[in-house]
Design a protein around this nucleic acid. Structure first.
Lengths: 185, 185
DNA sequence: TGGAGAGTACACAGATCGGTTTACTTTGTG
DNA sequence: CACAAAGTAAACCGATCTGTGTACTCTCCA
């Protein structure tokens, strides 16, 4: 009976935090968090020391899933694998509940790079950057380090575009193509 | 005595809102806002109907100044004028109190594109986009519309980079050069 | 000079914030 | 079965939130 069992409070809290913090911001209160997770506040403070701890744990535990949701062509050649990331982003940006990259959102809302959650967000961004850089290197890019940063910037820029205007733009893909072409990828 | 006069409460409130909402977020309370502006709460509600109204008015009134702070080479040729914007951003991103584009920040924090402040933020972003597009057109770009969007994305992507990691990166400028070169600008 | 408009200080309302505490119930297992 | 672990509901704490009400003072100008 491992498949139909209801998730434990800890996991329910992390799921509720993912949903609420993303759709409404990190200022959502613990009362609403507990209500959404169907967990009493007393239990919540048994599992987590504070609301911030939930936020950090949520970011840490979700990073791999977010990466997996973007690296949708792991067996393709580097250039296509990179482009697939932006195609995936483009599709996610069409969804009604899209509010940009959750890690950048948290960092933007906290406005404090020393906050543990900001550090967790930075960790994820470095991962994404490393992914781009590695693919660039595999494809024989002129300057993989620079290209990795450039692609990370384009990723966050395309996200910001969606946050402000809604939806996506084909200009993101053409920009990526131009950046890849410029380095012979 | 027009130069040494202390600004009126309305302007002091807008200045305090610009400072506090940017450095700490739109969730700063009206009490702290009034304290920073040295204006009584009663007076605040004489000038503005609500806290949100201050936020919207602040964004609207500050947009021209922000644009002016980026278009620092208005007499240069289009390509250099565009690059000057990213050089200005790069310098601003080095400053200790930098927290990204204030308009994108507000939109990110509100997570509601229908909010009047989000609409104001959108208006500013469209202005920046139009600026890039116009320069691209003047320089004879292959597809000025697409290039305008691409540059706006790079701008916000470079801003996000600074928010998450702090400081700037020379990769932003090289990316812009690649995008311009790809369109013969 | 005197009165109106603009400003102040401060208490208040009702809600919500993060977090704690008390008292009770459920659940899994030796 | 029995009992500890883990869960629940709900009151409570002091602080803060947006916004209002009251009562007073300042300043400028007809």
């Amino acid at each position: 009976m491992t498949s139909t069992t209801r998730p434990k409070p800890r996991e329910r809290l992390l799921a509720a935090a993912e949903e609420l913090f993303y759709s409404e911001g990190v200022h959502v209160g613990v009362d609403r968090l507990c209500e959404a997770a169907q967990v009493s506040k007393r239990s919540m403070y048994q599992h987590f020391g504070s609301k911030d701890e939930i936020l950090v744990e949520m970011l840490r535990s979700r990073a791999p899933q977010v990466m997996a949701g973007l690296d949708v062509a792991p067996d393709a050649a580097p250039r296509e694998r990179i482009l697939a990331v932006f195609d995936a982003l483009h599709e996610q940006a069409q969804a009604p509940g899209f509010h940009g990259c959750p890690f950048v959102s948290v960092a933007t809302e906290l406005k404090d790079r020393d906050h543990p959650a900001s550090v967790a967000a930075l960790g994820y961004k470095l991962e994404l950057n490393a992914f781009f850089e590695e693919q660039a290197r595999l494809a024989g890019a002129t300057d993989p380090v620079s290209l990795g940063v450039q692609l990370t910037m384009m990723f966050d820029g395309a996200s910001a575009y969606s946050v402000v205007r809604g939806g996506g733009s084909p200009a993101a893909r053409s920009a990526v193509v131009a950046l890849l072409d410029a380095q012979g990828v």
